[in-house]
């Protein structure tokens, strides 16, 4: 009886010792050296794994940070400058501050401004509808309202407004990861700098349609009339393909373009209320001026065309 117990103890212990020796040898032989700083950097990151930095997740981004010589192309939009400072501190490198961004919705075509002429009853997915046709309204550039961007948002920073049938971006929650920008088949959402005291001015329209059909399809569309371009003294507005674009870097937030826009396509966000709001009468006047201007420019253009021919 004793003999069996002793034999068992000896066999099992020797198996254990041999296995330990093999494992020790293997761990030395196939050792993978991993920079301990990767873990430290990863700890400093927000662990959202959203992919906003362009890498598949936070760890690959941390690896890239450790490898990189400078942080020119590396930026975590979720953590912002603070996180990047922390990362730089871990790695002993310098980092330049970048402007904080936020997503803005560049379609203002709520149901009351943009009448529907067809009814879509297919699969509830923006890209599918986009592949099928221009959308339920006459504007083929505008929001389709099926909320693919909302589904793409990993930070609960978006919701669909049932009244306007447009997505709404909650500014404080938005991390500018860019998931919604990629999800939108119509390229309506843009990442713009947050701006001083979160004040922003932008054109809330992406329609490249000419003035006539544009206005017909949506009463708040940018018709490319050029009034804002003429009003801006800072050269911040350019009109390309019948659509105005406000350069966020050049813009000094004077709000003059907002007043002159005949279709209220230019939006101001987080500004204090104006002392005298532009009245409806003023707007109609401006529309008239715009129309006269349009006729003039059209005439000039046709003259130019004739000359060149």
């Amino acid at each position: 009886m004793n003999g069996v117990v002793i034999a068992t103890i000896i066999t099992i212990s020797s198996v254990g010792i041999i296995a330990a020796i093999i494992l020790y040898w293997a761990s030395q032989k196939f050792k993978v050296f991993e920079d301990p700083r990767i873990d430290e950097v990863e700890d400093a990151l927000p662990s959202a794994n959203c992919g906003g930095c362009g890498f598949p997740g936070c760890r690959p981004f941390a690896e890239a940070c450790v490898k990189a010589d400078d942080f020119e192309d590396l930026y975590c939009p979720v953590g912002g400058n603070e996180t990047m400072m922390a990362v730089a501190k871990v790695l002993g490198k310098k980092v330049s501050e970048k402007a904080k961004m936020v997503a803005v919705m560049k379609c203002n075509g709520a149901t009351q401004f943009r009448k529907k002429h067809t009814e879509y009853d297919g699969a509830l997915n923006c890209t599918i509808q986009h592949n099928l046709y221009g959308g339920e309204t006459a504007c083929q550039y505008g929001c389709l309202g099926l909320g693919e961007c909302v589904d793409a948002c990993g930070f609960d920073a978006m919701y669909m407004d049932p009244e306007t049938e447009l997505p709404v971006i909650i500014e404080d929650m938005c991390t500018a990861c860019g998931a919604c920008v990629e999800a939108c088949p119509k390229d309506i959402i843009e990442l713009r700098p947050v701006g001083k005291k979160s004040k922003r001015i932008f054109v809330s329209c992406v329609s490249h349609e000419k003035a006539g059909p544009s206005k017909k399809a949506c009463s708040v569309a940018c018709i490319g009339c050029g009034l804002c371009f003429k009003e801006c003294k800072y050269d911040a507005i350019k009109i390309e393909n019948v659509l105005a674009y406000i350069d966020p870097i050049k813009c000094v937030l004077c709000r003059k373009c907002v007043v002159v826009c005949p279709t209220s396509a230019i939006w101001e966000v987080n500004f204090p209320a104006r002392k005298v709001k532009p009245t409806i009468e003023k707007k109609t006047k401006l529309t008239e001026i715009k129309e006269i201007d349009l006729i003039k420019t059209a005439k000039e253009n046709s003259k130019k065309d004739n000359k060149t021919e």
Binding site: G122, A123, N125, T127, I128, N131
Partner: peptide, 13 residues
Amino acid sequence: RPLLDYIRLGKTQ
């Protein structure tokens, strides 16, 4: 189920 709609989406992607 809108099978073809989604397959078309898959094809474009």
